[in-house]
Amino acid sequence: MAIRENEFFTLLGPSGCGKTTLLRLIAGFEYPDEGEILLNGRDIALLAPHERPVNTVFQSYALFPHMTVGQNIGFGLEMLGKPRREIAARVDEMLRLVRMEALKDRRTSQISGGQQQRVALARALAPQPKVLLLDEPLSALDYKLRKEMQIELKRLQHETGITFIFVTHDQEEALTMSDRIAVMSGGSILQVGTPRDIYDRPDKRFVADFIGEANFLPAQVLSSAGDRAKVTLGAGGEILAGLPHGTQPQGQITVMVRPEHAEIAGTDADATLSGTLESAVYFGTDTHLNVRLGDGSNFVVRRQNDRCADHGFAPGMPVGVRIRDGAAQVLRD
């Protein structure tokens, strides 16, 4: 796997999938049994942490409690042996960057969680590392602050031009911030791609399931051409579905449809599938319509709410589901 320069790269996966271990390998806190970690073509796998031009923002922040905010930020530069004046200038610059100028002389225990987060960021950015590692840095913040920091992180990455490797188990965080995402599970990388790739064209069932919601339908391949295949769904109906790169599947497969990529249709010929409406759950921005299909499986359709028009669906009524050509994706497994 290669991570490009100046990229916001995210390792996404459930806890225990090995994403933090991978990060610790890059930082140098753990050493690989085999394999290489190349940084600009140089193998850094066996270098000590302090010999790597890589800095980390820790999940726990790990700010030095016996130093002030300014001393924390300057620590890396001091260890690099930079002259005092340069350190002072850089610390001020960093404080400006994370908008913390007023708190330079505070103890780290005297500032809030969100401010500690910013100090941790400034401290890791101050030595201008080639790569910045971020280990679930937003997980301790409340929802509002997390949203704010997501935008802030993106801005910082843009302004500094440093490659960010970001670890998270929060799919929304991954989708909104990343240039590219690697989805991990059980210690291996399942798929690498842009947020759009990962969301719209997941390779595997795990990826589709972990990120967003998905309907999985058994299907049979009729024919395939290029990156599309004509399939018949087990529950009835024929559609054109996207194919994973470089695959020409045959026979029995599974296709994935995102709830918001399907629509409710009448029971007429327009509908790909038909069934009965089980329930309609109101979510504010949208409504989740659970449809029981002819073969007994459940299919969720997500429908944007309209303040001016009630959808008028009632449980028990017969409905059709329309899946437009290209709205479904064939999975690799």
Partner: peptide, 11 residues
């Protein structure tokens, strides 16, 4: 973890 953080910052 503080020791790790310091090592990460070139100490």
């Amino acid at each position: 973890r503080l020791a790790e953080a310091a090592a990460d910052l070139y100490a």
